[in-house]
Amino acid sequence: MTNIIEVNQLTKSFGSATTVNDVSFTIEEGKIYGLLGRNGAGKTTIMNMITAQLFPTSGEIKVFGEAPYENQSVLRQICFIKEGQQYPHLFRIADVLDLCPSLFPNWDNEYAYSLLEEYKLPVKRKIKKLSRGMLSSVGIVIGLASRAPLTIFDEPYLGLDAVARGIFYDRLLEDYAKHPRTIILSTHLIDEVSRMLEHVLLLDQGKLIINEEVDAIRGRAYTAIGSAKIMDSFMSGKQILHQESMGSIVSTTVFEPLDKQTRMEAEELGLEITPVSLQQLIIHLTNNTPKRKVDLNQ
């Protein structure tokens, strides 16, 4: 596999605040990545450094094998759709699209206009007259039609309703199948996108805490539900990620893969075992309450 991005011991500080703290990872060609984490976890800062809009305090970034700063041959291959992307206010949508072929070598104008139609965007309307959702749709159209070898969507759906988001997911998968490329999606709507992702990078307070294939993460935790008395003996020696109780019933999320023996033990004890969704797992992992003390490298 070719590495599109190589990030090595990347750190970014703003004054005394360290937003990105010693982060290393690689992004392989042709996969869909999810860059996840809470607000302020450092997602946007990392994307800004990858796209050369921000200098790292220390560490190294290589994009398509080269340093991205003022490097046209690298930057031409990237399309970065930011949250709340700004466009020249006096431009019409059509004017913005007219600029795209010169920015993105793979730009497909016909596809862009078919997407505009699907999103019912008024091509001749000025950018400043567009609603929040319409502006987001313009970003999505550009991101998809750019067909850039590295396409990054940072929280692209401010103000978008569920139908419009559904169109985005459908078109993204469809076009990705026809024109495979590397895509990074940064979002809070984990449940909505988790099935589309192949690999997840999870940031927590500037640190990278998960860097794994989605399928592997899915089996890393489970929840057991049952009476408090039984639970105590079952849970001893296990890595507990989260626990809550309601009366005498306790629900415990364990950060360990569920093996056959444990499953049988739980069944014999009368405990109910349920899966943990990617979103739930991430909430537990990044909800920084004192109860959570888990060694992620196990």
Binding site: K31, I32, Y169, D170, L173, E174, Y176, A177, R195, M196, L197, E198, V214, D215
Partner: peptide, 11 residues
């Protein structure tokens, strides 16, 4: 399969 179930083609 990917577009029908809205999943990643690699999956």
């Amino acid at each position: 399969f990917a577009s029908f179930y809205q999943i990643n083609p690699a999956t």
